[in-house]
Design a binder for these strands. Sequence first.
DNA 1: AATCCGAGCAACCGCAGCGGT
DNA 2: TACCGCTGCGGTTGCTCGGAT
Length: 365
Amino acid sequence: MGRSPCCDKVGLKKGPWTPEEDQKLLAYIEEHGHGSWRALPAKAGLQRCGKSCRLRWTNYLRPDIKRGKFSLQEEQTIIQLHALLGNRWSAIATHLPKRTDNEIKNYWNTHLKKRLAKMGIDPVTHKPKNDTLLSSDGQSKNAANLSHMAQWESARLEAEARLPQRSVDVLKAWNGGWSKSSEGNIGNGLNTTGIGGDHLESPTSTLTFSENAPPPIMNSSGIGGDNSIPMIELVETSGSSETGIIKGEHDWKTLGNSSHHHHHMPENSVSFTSSLHHPDMTISMEGPWSPESLRLNSSHIHAGNVVEEGFTNLLLSDSGDRLSDSGKESDNSGGSGSDYYEDNKNYWNSILNLVNSSPTDSPMF
DNA sequence: AATCCGAGCAACCGCAGCGGT
DNA sequence: TACCGCTGCGGTTGCTCGGAT
């Protein structure tokens, strides 16, 4: 794989951009669009490599960038998403209006990480550090720390409650082909690079899930091995209540490739909302659990990205591929499958307990 | 006033992945 | 299938600025 030599070329300027350079770049892109970044500098009369131009544009010159202090809401969003996604800044950036991944990354590293550390929360795992909260006999050290913990967990709950593990499992199954991640972050098969591109900027998403069990698990090859989610249709509604309903045989078999197993979906209900550039996309699922019955409702949304983005939101999981063909959990992360489910259960129970015993809107930051 | 030092942030670097040939 | 070009991403660097000494 040939490395792009653009930045190695001699004679190309590096370092801070001058206002003149900014002006040239801005003027060129406004008139022609960026097209090929590699070719752009010469056309725009810039002594820069294309990479540098792209970076300058995406991180600074783009007209839709908001600069300045992060709001409380933005901070919480970053923290919550970081708890789910880890250092996937570009994915996090798609949830913050007009913020760039670079800015979010910097903000995390310079502000939020330190703040969490101060609170005794491990900024990597987003869990309270043992030595901070517990003494050797497991008793809490002091009430302040416990309060921090409760507040933090409460905020974390907000994020994670939007993403029940089982829904993640379902979507993993839908998507199929999850890869393992050495760092414990997701390695899903979805292409996220199209998210947050020129047409999609600031989704915030929630997922709600009924108490009933979600569908059984697909095999690992899943549906749509090309990472698409072909069973979903997006209907442009422009604010009307009109929705497109896709109905068909309530049988997964009709949707995927012929190799996967036949599973019937139990009754279930899913509601997914996402606010994008022009928010309020709603995906709701009613009746028999089957992707055919997904009902999508959106307005002013770049349709191609919406579906992908929406499901990427659902795929925010730190678990790897734990699903097997038969729907049982499989073990490929070092622990047994039952350990995983036990841990998961305990985890959710602890979060729910914390939330039940603490104010939901307690100011943390 | 000069120097030091840390925080904040813009920009760079290298890698991975994708599409085209 | 292998190679190449290109883009995007995340980690890191290094410059700037402001506060402390």
